[in-house]
Design a protein around this nucleic acid. Sequence first.
DNA 1: GAAAATGATTTTAATTATTAAATACAAATT
DNA 2: AATTTGTATTTAATAATTAAAATCATTTTC
Lengths: 300, 300
Amino acid sequence: MARTDDRFRSAYNKLLDICTNMEVGGQLPAEVVLAERMEVSRTIVRSALHKLDAENLILWEGRRKTLVKRPDKRHRLSQSESLPTGEELERRFLEWILHFDVPAGTSLNIAQLSRQFGVPAHSLQAFLSGLSRFGLVERRAKGGWILSGFTAEFAVELSDFRLVLEMNAVRHLLSLPEDHQIWGKLKEIRKEHEDLRRDLKDRYHDFSTLDEKFHTTINSVVKNRFVLEAQKLISLIFHYHYMWDKRDEQERNAAAIEEHLDWIDAMLAQDRARSEEAALNHLRRSKETLLASLKNHKLG
Amino acid sequence: MARTDDRFRSAYNKLLDICTNMEVGGQLPAEVVLAERMEVSRTIVRSALHKLDAENLILWEGRRKTLVKRPDKRHRLSQSESLPTGEELERRFLEWILHFDVPAGTSLNIAQLSRQFGVPAHSLQAFLSGLSRFGLVERRAKGGWILSGFTAEFAVELSDFRLVLEMNAVRHLLSLPEDHQIWGKLKEIRKEHEDLRRDLKDRYHDFSTLDEKFHTTINSVVKNRFVLEAQKLISLIFHYHYMWDKRDEQERNAAAIEEHLDWIDAMLAQDRARSEEAALNHLRRSKETLLASLKNHKLG
DNA sequence: GAAAATGATTTTAATTATTAAATACAAATT
DNA sequence: AATTTGTATTTAATAATTAAAATCATTTTC
């Protein structure tokens, strides 16, 4: 068999639903109408109708499609569970690299990985060629892929890139009018930081999520598809690192909370110089932490 | 037939070359040695040897591979011409979009495009999924691709992104020591601008190339894979626009040359404020030009 | 007879099957 | 014992296949 008939199956089931809501003896609408309502092509509608006819659920004569009897559960076609989305795949792939410390230079086995992640091989290929734009993987001349890797160099360049983008976001943020919603959001996040600081002993694991939220909020003021795309990757990587690097976790998070608060306060005070300084301070520390955690992993 | 035997053919021809440089009656080296020298796997070497044996060019008994007679031109296998590289494909694809004003929302026909560009369909797919990271194309739920396009919005965001990256490059550049090679390069480029300004009436077409060289030089001080990748796309698009937008070309280029010279002088003078201002000035004008040219195209 | 609906055909693209090539392992020769 | 060859297995690129979409032609209905 070539491609799956998932689309047909789901359309057929939808058609059953339509029949269930009709009186026996009633007429089904025209093929074009059904196609439009079900968001598929007429070809699928027609094959579904053929099957309904073959199952004696309808009587199909030319343009008369008379419901003979209401379908029940037994008539429904089973659906193969839907494939993971692109984002889900991205998340799992990065998780795999970062969590298991897959070393740079590892050659990636498409067949095995596609089994592991439960996606068809060609969609993994497509995904990898997307990633190759970021230099995380490379295509070999002979064929196949290698993980050019999550190296220290990669981490440095990623951090520097992040610095450029976030400093830009900060400058942009400070130019926003007082009634912009960002100021309210910042105050909220400030409170969340204080709450977390108070209960840090019990809740220090929660910082990873709060950190992501904070950076996402700051960057949200920049409406730019290139920036957003880059930031998705950046925040994924930093997020996972926070999650898995367990050394001195509580102390590190305590320090980061203070850095965040300084930064937030400077922005709320509309103090540009101080904001930039606080941002620089935090982002540089963040870079060091990422690097240190990498070295630690390689050694451990 | 499944995959092509291009690799085999090129290896076989290389093997013929090796035989040509040998005495009749001589021994070919071991399979592993040949494989290494020809940069292919032993499997290919063995199939090539099998063919040489079948053609009675060598006598192959176990590890003795005796040259029976020298091969001539008739023995060579014809090679299918090599496929365009990834960069070549990227260039041609953008050229197609920009030059023919393919409108946003156009659905891309993989089969037809792969014929048009002379590449296998799946490598076009891979390329498109790379581009989708930049939001230039999108995958549809139904399957297939659409050109989400080179819209005014895209141009604005691209220009803004360029602004962020180049301003960062300028700041970085000004912090470089006096003996860094960038200063020499800048002086060279300054001279090229002056030369072009002098002969502008005859050579105004050359500005497109000089512009690309100038921006590439400035950005070259930032060693960062993400920045570089983004800049490849940016410079391609700006470069093609300069090439195809013919309205007021000479005047526009004259103005741009002056802007470049102001910018270069400010940097050579190590004047940070003036450099940033000159950069801003040029980049903003550049953005307006790009936008205007877009609107013009759509109308014309 | 015009609009709408259906029937048939062509085109496009997702997936499988097939084959080329690489790799790994075992046996044989020097 | 080291090197080389022979065989088997694994991997990935491409062609073939089939589902689905799009297009065109015909028929039906008002």
